[in-house]
Amino acid sequence: MKKIMISSLLIFSLVGCQSNTSSEFDTSKLVKIEMSDVTEEQQKNIPITYEANSLEDGLKALPFEVKLPNSLPIKDTEFQPPVINDMKHGGEELMTEFQAASQDGKESILISVFNKEVNLNDEGTREVDINNEIKGYYGNNSLSFNKGNVSYTISFLNKELTEEERLIELTKIAEQMI
């Protein structure tokens, strides 16, 4: 009995590690979006776009970890399956978009994730402390920050919020992702 339990734990540990340690972009459960109005030459210069069938499939396909927020400021909504853009066709540079919207379409959140660190201090943004370790940059209804070698931009559209209220909500979302 003891050997069976140890074997089961060992197998469980190995399976758990396999899904988290993959450094390869896995397109096996993604749907490639074909662009019929684009020539072969043009296709070489634009990202390959994939859609996931589920949020879970999209997250598992990525060769890096993305922690999405558990709580959103939009009631009764959840993230849709992501769109993943393979920027250079080799799976090394990926830009992934996660979106959630209210039933009436008046509010929406878009989280864009890029698996490389980006200079976020653009003109027209203001620096914001997300926590003691990470600073973000706010501007244009969006909060951007780098965590490790991954860049995040969270956009929140809600015309009823003031700039400060929107910044507070965006900061709450970012804190959950760190």
Rank of each mutant, 00 (worst) to 15 (best):
V66Q: 03
V66L: 01
V66E: 07
V66F: 04
K67T: 11
K67D: 03
K67F: 01
K67I: 09
K67Y: 02
K67H: 03
L68N: 06
L68A: 05
L68Y: 04
L68T: 02
P69V: 09
P69Y: 09
P69G: 08
N70E: 15
N70W: 04
N70Y: 09
N70T: 13
N70I: 04
N70M: 09
N70V: 11
S71N: 10
S71G: 00
S71W: 03
S71H: 12
L72G: 15
P73N: 04
P73E: 02
P73L: 04
I74M: 09
I74W: 07
I74V: 11
I74G: 15
I74Q: 08
I74K: 06
I74T: 08
I74F: 03
D76N: 15
D76R: 13
D76V: 09
D76T: 10
D76Y: 13
D76F: 13
T77G: 12
T77W: 06
T77S: 15
T77A: 15
T77L: 04
E78D: 14
E78K: 13
E78V: 07
E78P: 00
E78T: 11
F79I: 04
F79A: 14
F79C: 14
F79E: 08
F79R: 07
F79Y: 05
F79P: 10
Q80F: 10
Q80H: 05
Q80E: 14
Q80G: 00
Q80Y: 09
P81W: 09
P81T: 11
P81Q: 12
P81G: 11
P81A: 14
P81M: 12
P82S: 15
P82T: 09
V83P: 00
V83N: 00
V83S: 06
I84K: 02
I84L: 02
I84A: 03
I84Y: 00
N85H: 04
N85K: 11
N85C: 10
N85G: 05
N85P: 07
D86V: 07
D86Q: 10
M87W: 03
M87E: 09
K88R: 13
K88A: 13
K88N: 12
K88D: 09
K88G: 03
K88Y: 09
K88S: 13
H89T: 08
H89V: 10
H89L: 07
H89G: 04
H89E: 05
G90L: 03
G90Q: 12
G90C: 06
G91F: 08
G91A: 08
E92F: 08
E92R: 14
E93K: 13
E93S: 08
E93I: 14
E93F: 03
E93H: 10
E93L: 07
L94S: 02
L94P: 01
L94Q: 02
L94M: 04
M95A: 12
M95G: 00
M95W: 01
M95F: 09
M95K: 05
T96L: 00
T96N: 01
T96K: 00
T96C: 00
E97Q: 15
E97R: 01
E97W: 00
E97N: 08
F98R: 02
F98D: 08
F98L: 04
Q99M: 14
Q99R: 05
Q99W: 02
Q99L: 07
